[in-house]
Design a protein around this nucleic acid. Structure first.
Lengths: 192, 192
DNA sequence: ACCCAATGAGACATCAATGTCTCATTCGAT
DNA sequence: ATCGAATGAGACATTGATGTCTCATTGGGT
């Protein structure tokens, strides 16, 4: 009586389950394991066989997110060319991971600093280094610290992801809106 | 054997309980009712007598946050003077409510759009109107929509609040960092 | 000095999510 | 065709938070 959409037995695709989980948890962060399982099209028992518990699932999502973010950094080649153009490329490459990133950032704030994944530090360091490089090359202003620019970067990515999801911003404008605000600000500049 | 810090019986100060709850939930959004009660220095039963349940508590916090934000708007006189200066004043006035605002925004994202508090629409409208005014007066660029600028405003406020709480940004720099990034962006402008 | 409203502490039932287990089923590999 | 590994469905116990209740205590108001 059941109907299988595609591939029903033998070896559940772990990555595909993670993507389904990310898609759901991104929209509803409080979704239960049962809901995640249904969203992934598998049984709850099977979900537990692959991920020991909710924590394990979230950590696996963390791994996935970190991997994709590092890949985005690599693709954006953030160490090459003018820093502002590198930021633009980075935002563009990060777009697909933005909702997942937003979820993970919120989730991380709940963790009381006990055991953080090292990946975050590496990513923070890469973003921070990009802004620092921009400052040293005279492209970015020096009165805003790299730490704050990094924080703002994540914040705007998250805001952009939510705005797109809620339909307040068109998906095609995601990169432009974020980059223009992050680099140029809201004030109308005289020149340009 | 017990020691009362101040006022131990008769008529718990509702506002003070809300402030304690806000202070705790801001740091740990998943705190239980029991933890909230302890943080407020009252019994769990008493907490339940004043707020029917967790939902009621969060809604009361929403009311409090909305009231304080509207008060901040009033104090900032966002309809007077140049729009960019009005934004600067607004950020300054909003600073104290920032952590609570951050918590409520996250909490609201979980609600599946069922019953939203009207206050948010009013606040959104005020912020949005400020940015629109700035555009009409030629102070703000017109290629970034007021809706996005509003979203970014909230996002940066939240990022700033977390950055301060985690010690990545000094509390005294809160207003400056947010305003400068929001209005001027990270790019170093030629003039100025 | 008395009374009563409000509190704190704790017992209790309830509920939802979790994690574990069993068992029949189904397909892939041999 | 057969075997076996992995699955789905569901039962079950457990845990943690919630909401309700009782009762002794306290202190302000009269």
């Amino acid at each position: 009586m059941s109907h299988w959409v595609y591939g029903c037995l033998m070896s559940v695709d772990r990555t595909q389950v993670l993507r389904a989980a990310a898609a759901l948890l991104t929209r509803k962060a409080t979704a239960t394991m049962d809901e995640v399982a249904r969203a992934a099209g598998i049984g709850r028992a099977t979900l537990h066989r692959h991920f020991a518990g909710r924590d394990a699932l979230v950590r696996a999502l963390e791994e996935l997110g970190i991997q994709e973010l590092e890949a985005a950094h690599d693709r954006a080649r953030t160490q090459e060319g003018p820093a502002d153009e590198a930021v633009r490329r980075l935002v563009g490459e990060v777009e697909d991971v933005a909702p997942l990133l937003s979820f993970l950032v919120t989730e991380n704030q709940l963790f009381e600093g006990d055991q953080q994944n090292d990946g975050w530090e590496r990513l923070d360091a890469r973003v921070s280094a990009l802004f620092r490089r921009g400052q040293e090359e005279g492209v970015f202003r020096i009165d805003l610290t790299p730490a704050w620019l990094t924080e703002a970067f994540y914040g705007l990515i998250g805001s952009g992801a939510w705005a797109v999801q809620d339909g307040r911003v068109a998906a095609k404008d995601f990169q432009y809106m974020i980059v223009e605000l992050l680099l140029g600000g809201a004030r109308r500049s005289v020149e340009k």
